[in-house]
């Protein structure tokens, strides 16, 4: 279970998160919606340990461990995965090698044996097939020369291979056509189970049609201003955020 209490964070002394309280029980998918600049991406970065954000108040525990005191790689080993809104290009780094290095680092942290190249490729090929990704994406350099949609799919591929306990999807749906969107949603749905939870950051109802959340939270001005069921997303699609924000202020 992810438990966020009174979380405040700033970047370059500018406060972005101003007291977030949020609980995601094991096995649940929660959506975070909200206007641009409300702090949605910051929340994802802070949870995954990006160092240029300073946590100024609050606590985050994940399965009873203090997440905020951990290095990014230790959070990943603990099961946290952030699907980047703008995935980073790594020229000169082969995608398959990158994925295998990451998987083996996490396996090592769990005291499990490492996969050799052959074992890994078998696993990776099965996942690329399931995500309808061409095999050559494994041979290319990480995200280099990938289209926007390919980059997002590559994030989902990483998630499928690393099998996190908590996936944070930061606008993974943006820039995707309807087929790709369905593939991404299916990728997340495939991981759903009693030990998996997800925070889905999105602007659009569209993704949530395929990836139905247990709860929907609206983030505005660095605070959660409203929480509801899946119907809240539909309501926002119709009425927008303006009324909600005015109501909260």
């Amino acid at each position: 279970m992810l438990d966020i209490r009174g979380l405040a964070a700033s970047i370059n002394d500018k406060p972005i998160l101003k007291g977030i309280d949020l609980t995601v029980p094991e096995g649940e998918v929660h959506a975070i919606m909200g206007p641009n600049g409300s702090g949605k991406s910051t929340l994802g970065y802070v949870l995954s340990g990006r160092e240029d954000y300073e946590v100024t108040a609050g606590t985050v525990t994940f399965n009873d461990v203090d997440l905020l005191g951990m290095a990014p790689e230790d959070r990943a080993a603990a099961g946290v995965f952030l699907a980047f809104q703008a995935p980073i290009e790594l020229p000169g780094v082969n995608n398959a090698n990158f994925l295998r290095t990451a998987l083996n680092a996490i396996r090592r942290a769990h005291g499990e044996s490492e996969l050799d190249a052959v074992q890994f490729l078998k696993l990776a090929r099965a996942e690329t097939k399931r995500l309808a990704m061409p095999d050559d994406m494994l041979k290319r350099n990480v995200n280099v020369g990938f289209s926007g949609g390919e980059k997002k799919r590559n994030e989902v591929l990483q998630m499928a291979i690393l099998r996190p306990k908590l996936a944070i999807l930061d606008e993974t749906d943006s820039g995707l056509d309807i087929d790709a969107l369905k593939i991404v949603a299916d990728g997340v749905n495939a991981l759903r189970g009693p030990k998996f939870s997800a925070l889905v950051i999105t602007h659009h109802q569209r993704l949530l049609d395929h990836l139905v959340p247990n709860r929907v939270h609206v983030l505005a001005g660095g605070r959660i201003v409203r929480t509801g069921g899946p119907e809240l997303a539909k309501e926002l699609e119709k009425s927008g955020y303006a009324g909600l924000i005015a109501e909260a202020a």
């Binding site: 995954s48 340990g49 990006r50 160092e51 290095a71 990014p72 790689e73 959070r75 990943a76 080993a77 995965f81 952030l82 980047f84 995935p87 980073i88 790594l90 020229p91 000169g92 780094v93 990158f98 290095t101 990451a102 998987l103 680092a105 996490i106 942290a109 990483q158 690393l162």
Partner: peptide, 20 residues
């Protein structure tokens, strides 16, 4: 950060980027 967020420890991440 991208490499470390995937579980790759700091020293290994550095070495990957220099090799790249």
């Amino acid at each position: 950060f991208y490499l470390r967020s995937r579980g790759i420890p700091d020293a290994e991440a550095r070495s990957i980027l220099v090799r790249a």
